[in-house]
Amino acid sequence: MGMDRREFIKSCSLVAVMGLLFGCRKIPLEELAGDLPSLKRFEDEVKLALSQAKKSLDLVKIPTPGALKIPGASTLNRFGMAIDLDSCDGCGKCILACNLENNVPLVPNEDAARGRFMHWVDMRGSAPFMCAHCGNAPCERVCPTGAANHTPDGLSAMMYKRCTGSRFCGANCPVQARKFNFNDAQKLGLARQFNREVPLRDKGVMEKCSLCLHRLQNDRLKFKTSLTVGETAEEWRGRGVKTACAEACPKNAIIFGNWLDEKSPLVKLTKNRVLYAPRELADLDPSVVFMRGRR
């Protein structure tokens, strides 16, 4: 095998080129990352979550939420929800509607077994429980990068690209309404974009109920587009917008609306009702409250 130096170098370079080509060939299958999960798997996971729900709610009376007390708050809008405990029978349709509307991912089996779901709404004391969008929110106070912030119209918004995953907000939420993306749902084929309006969250980010921020945003933008074309000169009050869970509830137990707008269904339907909130949130000025019994 008397190979002289020139042939030796030629064959080495050939091998190197082959290696290079092999390395950087585009793996077509990479983007597909497995097939998209079917709708049935989402429904099954909600049923599993319902069967495992064991936390209860320790409710205490609170006054009707008023305007926000943070500087620069809007005096016209304070969005919130009221959940009627009398008419809610814990069917769980709102959880599935929320998961489909906000592209909430599935979780691998060992997390599901341990009850570590990603659902933004979970059943506590046979009633749907989600982030209460507190006016004086403890999670926003301790978030280091400012990813958790409060909008002037009362939503505790989450900027996923600013989140560095320190998980301090999850620790500081007294009722644990925040869920952490432990796994890369897209890579494991556990996430599916049912609603193109809402972007998928990537791994290592904390997420929570956004009070269907995208619906409110779209409605506000549509109103402001038609506003200056000369239709109605008054301000946007978010009328007619409903959250996914409020729409899906067969008994209309979840009422979405604007606490500061008399014409909003929220103020009308909670006028003669007694409002409750979990004990830990009572003095944090929550805007998602519970109702039970008549005044």
Binding site: N149, T151, P152, L155, A157, M159, V198, P199, L213, Q217
Partner: peptide
């Protein structure tokens, strides 16, 4: 116009 985060981010 509005400059709070949730005005332009989702």
């Amino acid at each position: 116009a509005a400059t709070y985060c949730a005005a332009c981010h989702r």
